[in-house]
Design a protein around this nucleic acid. Structure first.
Lengths: 347, 347
DNA sequence: CTGAAAGCGCTTACAG
DNA sequence: CTGAAAGCGCTTACAG
């Protein structure tokens, strides 16, 4: 097992100084073309790769981003929220496209943060993904901001200016979901999902929902809002709570697809038909949504664009450029869990 | 923006030498307890974190693993195979549990490999995940092995001893899937998936399949095997090819769940009922499998255990310990896409 | 265009 | 138990 080649080995073979090797490999215009070519050929032959630890140490940046996925400890240990998985895919690609590497880690909200990726110079910046309890970790974010850590957080819209966020427009998503339900002729809509400041994303969806109801001359009824976190199980329980409450409803707006799927299970157990008796709309458009039965109508978050925007914003922040929080529009994906739209309403 | 603290800053504050700081922070028993505590307190106060680039450079290891997901370029750019996503989750957890960081990257088979993670000292070892064409990248693996890169590859069973592999027992999976189909009373089974050496995992499943058929007094019919890669679309096309071929069959063994789902779509388009007319069994147990209609009976790969074994094996290899290729048993998940088993067969 | 030299921030033998 | 010193492998001003 030959020891790994260093720039000194190459310098020796090429008959130049180590500095020249370093310059040649970085394509410095200072180096004579012939010399550069010769050096690069030798480097290739020896399968030489610049030692990142050394070069990062010297230049003080790592060309690496860290992705922290913060999961609610309530979640099943083995199951990662599929929406995050999809984000992870797009973030990975976007990061690679920018010539950066990506460090991925999962974070239990309860445990200590190794958000020290940046402090330890392993990453130049951090991406935070999490449906967790916002209030719980708000102070951790503040600490990050204080330490001048470069980071961007997905979703939670910046009540705080020091926190850079990129997210889909949850308010608008709530509006279009509700508008769709109304167009389908549903009039009595229950909302499944936490609407408190603990879940700012769900809250914004709820806000869009109630504003759109108001526009249609209706009001959101607090008695028809049931808390749920983004799991199938929680959605199942919330739907049962709704059913047991005796409240009337002809549609459910679930704050996430997982909640919607759990809710549909509860409905089906009670013999309630979707979409005939009750319409259901979800949120996220995770892969499973199209396989649910009936296939779930939902609000799609464009994860590809989102990943790109996140990486782009973070990189700008790292470079000290001006960055604005980004809001990405959502769109509706119509499938089978709501009645066909009443094209011309005879009301 | 205060410059990041270094061990020298801490030494200065603590009135000791920088070496002592370094020792104290690594909990060296050489350091006086009181001194150590004092140093650690100061470090915490200054939010000091050891610079990984410096320490890695010095110790020549990175405490980082790299995960390369090699995708078939045929795949839809935005869709990652859900099975890999699930593996990614478990590998991430297992890596963190061992105190290592994980670098993730997607790799187009066509493009150049930046498997140079290890060469550049960014990672101590590499994990390869890929349903790609094995023949295409076999020589790349050889090169990795030649360079003494530490790596472990998922799935493909070691024809080559220099390559460390961890995988589920594909042969056994093929056996139990086929046994299940036979127990359900199906007798005429088509196989959807590449059975050539290009896809060693699929081939092993096919081998288990045909051996089990033979045990039941039947023979695998090459005319009922149709190539497919692991995508829904490819499964759809393979099933249509099967249907158009005019071959008789009463069951389909799909080499992956995605293939099975695509095949069920093709069947349903032609009014063929699952499981009454045709039984379908998949492979992987991806999350979507339980939402397909009918819910897909499938062979489950234990991704949690797999991730742990992969990381464990790789770490052993890095430490120079003896490692054996690992074979993880599979199990069957019975859902609705096959008829109920004929408990007491009256044949 | 090239080389000699300093230095990034650690870890760890070596000497005491 | 502690300190002075070397050195990991680069990059980059500085001098020529």
């Amino acid at each position: 097992m030959a020891a790994k080649a260093t720039s000194i080995d190459i310098a020796y073979r090429a008959g130049v100084s180590q500095s020249t090797v370093s310059r040649a490999l970085r394509n410095s215009p200072l180096v004579n073309e012939a010399t550069r070519l010769k050096i690069q050929a030798i480097a290739k032959e020896l399968n030489y790769k610049v030692d990142k630890n050394a070069s990062n140490l010297r230049t003080q940046n790592s060309h690496t981003l860290a992705l922290l996925i913060c999961e609610d400890p309530t979640n099943d240990d083995s199951m990662i929220n599929p929406f995050f998985l999809s984000m992870l895919g797009s973030i990975t690609r976007a990061t690679a496209q920018q010539g950066y590497d990506l460090l991925v880690s999962f974070q239990q909200l309860s445990s200590d943060w190794h958000a020290d990726y940046e402090d330890s110079n392993k990453a130049d910046g951090i991406i935070l993904l999490g449906y967790g309890d916002y209030v719980d970790y708000a102070h951790k974010l503040e600490r990050l901001a204080e330490q001048n850590t470069h980071f961007v957080i997905w979703g939670a819209q910046g009540s705080d200016d020091s926190v850079l966020s990129v997210g889909c427009d949850n308010y608008q998503g709530g509006v279009i979901a509700t508008a769709h339900l109304l167009e389908c002729g549903y009039k009595d809509i229950a909302f499944l999902g936490d609407s408190s400041s603990h879940s700012p994303e769900f809250r914004d969806r709820y806000l869009g929902h109630s504003d759109e109801l108001r526009k249609g001359g209706l009001t959101a009824d607090a008695n028809k809002q049931f808390d749920a976190i983004s799991t199938e199980d929680s959605g199942y329980q919330a739907a049962n709570a709704l059913l047991d409450s005796g409240e009337n409803f002809d549609a459910i707006f679930a704050a996430s697809d997982l909640i919607a799927i759990g809710a549909m299970l509860a409905l089906s157990e009670r013999g309630i038909r979707v979409p005939e008796d009750v319409g259901v709309i979800g949120y996220d458009d995770i892969p499973v949504a199209s396989y649910a039965s009936p296939a779930l109508t939902t609000v799609k978050q464009n994860t590809k664009l989102a990943g790109e925007k996140i990486v782009e914003s973070l990189l700008k922040a790292i470079r000290g450029q001006e960055v604005e929080p980004q809001l990405i529009p959502t769109s509706i994906v119509v499938r089978q869990s709501c009645r066909a739209e009443t094209v011309v309403s005879a009301d």
